[in-house]
Design a binder for these strands. Structure first.
Lengths: 137, 137
DNA sequence: CTGACTGCAAAATATTTGCAATTCG
DNA sequence: CGAATTGCAAATATTTTGCAGTCAG
C-alpha cells in the first residue's frame, strides 16, 4: 500500500509523519518529470486543498536533507526535485526543456574508473553529475 | 591591446560596440571564477561607475546569444557566466561552492565516443555537460 | 505535554521589462 | 538621422523567513 510505504520511508528517515508529507512524498514517487515546487504544490492540492506553498517548500527541503530526494536547478534557475536516489544522468531536451532520467551503470562506471585512474590535481572527487543535452526524436 | 580585442570580438559577433559592452567583456575575460551578474556589476563599476545593473544583465544575455559567453546556473539557482567557449567540465567544490573550469580533452573524447557507440533510445545527443563535485585539497 | 510542523503573510533574492534619454554607425 | 542601447525604476518570479496556532509522538 502506497500510504504505508510513504509512512515507513518518512519515519525511517527521522522525520515526523504528517499528512502533508505523505501527499508530497507520493506525488514525487509517481512523477516522471522533475517537478518544481510549484508543480508539486499544484498536484498536491488535489489531494489536500488546504496545503500551503510554504509547507511544500519546507517539506521538499526536509526530504532532501533527509536523503529521500535529490534536487538540482535547471537551466532557468528553478529548483527541480528528483525521487531517484541512485547515481544517474539527465537527458535535457533543448527543444522542449524536458528533463528525463537516464540510468546507465556502464557509463557511470566508465566515468568513475576514469576519474579514479586519472586524479585531478588538488581535487578529491566525490560524485559526478552528467547532463546530456540534445533532442528527443 | 585588450580594448582592441574586445572591440573586434564584439563587432564580429554582430553587436554594436559600446563602452559598457567593452568593460563587461574585459571583466569576463580576466575572470577565473564564474561570476554572477552581480559580481560582474561590482567589478565593472570600478572602470565605469555609472553603469547600471540592468545593462549588465542585458549585456551578458546578449553576449550569450551572440556566442561570446556560455552561461549555466549553479546549485543555488544563480546564473553564472563563463568566457571559455570550448567544451569543458566544471569542478564544483562542495565546501567552498567555488566553481573551476576543468578542461580534459581525453575525458571529453571518452564520453563522446561512448555516446556515439551507445546510442540513447529516442534521443539525439548534441552536447554533454559534466560537473564533478568534490573538495579542493 | 512539548517540540516539531503547518499556514499565512511578509521579506529577501534574482532577473526581466518598459520607457525616455542617449549613443553608435 | 535612425535604430540600437542605456539607465532607472517598477514589475515578476522564486524561495526563505517569522510567527502564532496545531498536531504527532
Amino acid at each position: 500500500m502506497i500510504a504505508e510505504t510513504a509512512r515507513e520511508k518518512i519515519t525511517e528517515s527521522g522525520l515526523k509523519f504528517t499528512h502533508q508529507r505523505m501527499v508530497v512524498y507520493n506525488a514525487l514517487q509517481v512523477s516522471a518529470d522533475h517537478p518544481t515546487a510549484e508543480m508539486v504544490f499544484a498536484k498536491v492540492k488535489e489531494a489536500n486543498p488546504s496545503i500551503s506553498l510554504g509547507t511544500v517548500y519546507k517539506t521538499l527541503e526536509n526530504f532532501v536533507k533527509a536523503g529521500l530526494l535529490q534536487k538540482f536547478t535547471d537551466d532557468s534557475g528553478v529548483m527541480r526535485f528528483d525521487p531517484m536516489l541512485e547515481t544517474h544522468s539527465h537527458l535535457y531536451c533543448t527543444a522542449t526543456q524536458q528533463i528525463k532520467d537516464y540510468k546507465n551503470p556502464e557509463l557511470e562506471l566508465l566515468l568513475k574508473k576514469y576519474l579514479q585512474a586519472n586524479q585531478i590535481e588538488d581535487f578529491e572527487v566525490e560524485e559526478v553529475s552528467l547532463v546530456i543535452k540534445g533532442k528527443t526524436k
